[in-house]
Design a protein around this nucleic acid. Sequence first.
DNA 1: TGCAAAGCGGAGGATGCCTCCGTATCGTAT
DNA 2: ATACGATACGGAGGCATCCTCCGCTTTGCA
Lengths: 199, 199
Amino acid sequence: MAPQPLPCTRPTRADAARNYDRLVTAARETFAEHGTDSSLEEIARRAGVGIGTLYRRFPSRTALLEAVYVEEIQSVCDRAYDFDRELEPFDALAAWLRSFLGYGLSKGTLASELTVALGKDSPFFKACKVNVQEAGNLLLDKAKAAGEVRAELDLADVMRLVGGINMGRDIEPEQANRLLDIVLCGLRPAAAAASPAKG
Amino acid sequence: MAPQPLPCTRPTRADAARNYDRLVTAARETFAEHGTDSSLEEIARRAGVGIGTLYRRFPSRTALLEAVYVEEIQSVCDRAYDFDRELEPFDALAAWLRSFLGYGLSKGTLASELTVALGKDSPFFKACKVNVQEAGNLLLDKAKAAGEVRAELDLADVMRLVGGINMGRDIEPEQANRLLDIVLCGLRPAAAAASPAKG
DNA sequence: TGCAAAGCGGAGGATGCCTCCGTATCGTAT
DNA sequence: ATACGATACGGAGGCATCCTCCGCTTTGCA
C-alpha cells in the first residue's frame, strides 16, 4: 500500500530497541502537549532513559522529529487510499484534507509543523514528501480529471494552504473547518463568476 | 488616519531613547533574519548595549516583539486606507492581502508570526487587532457590499489563511502568489459551479 | 560461561534566560 | 559652571537547556 519504504533506524539489540520505542513514544506525547520546542532532557526523563541515550540515537532534535513523523506520515497516506476507495473524487480529496486538519487539531501543532517539514531539504523529509505526494496526487489528479479542481494547481500548494490553517497553535475547530471550506472553494475551476486576481 | 493610538513606551531621556531605538532596530533585523526565537543577548550585542538595558526596557521577549510590531502594524493599516482610495473594492482587498504577503516574504516570518500574535490575548495585541480589523474590515465590507466576497466570511478567517501561506519560512514568491490566488478565489461567492464541501 | 561489541547514562562545558545592584550619565536648579 | 538627585547602564551570576564525551554495564554469540 505504501509505495516507498520510509527510513527507519530502529536498532536490533533488545535494550536499544526498547529504549528507542520509549523515546519515540515520549517524544510524540511531549511534542503534542508542549510543542516541538520541548526540552529534550524532559523527553529523556519521561522515557526513563539518560540524556546520552537520547542523543546517541537521535543526534539532533530534527532526527527525533523524523522518527515521530514516520508513523504520522504513514497514517496520513493510508487514509488517502481509504478515501480514494470509498468516495467520489472531489469528496475524497476534501475528506482527506479535512482529516489532515482534524488530526492537526488533536495533535497540537504537529501537523502544521509536519507541513513545514515537508518543505525542508533533508533526505528524510524528501522521502516523506514522495510518499505523501504519491497518495495526495492520486486524489488530486482524480479530482482534476473529474473537472472539479483547477488543472494548474499542484499538491504542494494545497498542502501548504491546509497546513497553514492551524499554524497558529490555537484555532477553534469551527473556524478551521470554515477556512478549509474557503480553500476548497478556491480549488474549484473558475467556472462562472469567480476569477483570481491575476490569472 | 489610524483610529487607535498604539501604546508606545519610548523613554524621554536622551541616552535611554537612543538605546531604545537601537534595540528595536536590532530586534527587527535579527527577528527577520533568524526568526523570533533569536537570542536576546545577540540582539543586545548587535544594538551595542548591555543585556540589562534590554531587559529593563523590555521585560520579556514579547514586549520587544510588541515594539517591533507597532511600526509594522501601522504600515499595514496605512496601506489598507491607501488601497481603499485608489482601487475598486475587490481589487483593493486583493492588493492589500498581496502586499501583506509580499511584506512577509521580505521580512522572513515576521508577518506570519504577526498573524499568530494577533490571535493572542495580551492587551497590546488586542489593540493591534482592533486597528488591523478596522482597516481590513473597511476593505472586506466594501467587497462584500459589491457582492464580490461571500457575506459569511470574517476578516480573521481571511487574515489567517493569508498569514498561513508563508508560515513555513521559505516559500517561493511565485508559489505564494499562486496560493493567494486560490484563497482569493475561495473568497468569492459560490456564484455558479463552485460550492464548498459542506455549505 | 566468557568476551567483544554495543549500548547506557550522567558529568560538564557552552550558551541563553533573566535578576540584581554598584557605577555612570543626564537634566535641572542654583 | 557646578552640584545633586533621578534615571539609566551593563555585566556578573544563578538557573535551565543543549550537546559531547567517556567510563561502566548489558547483550548476544560462540
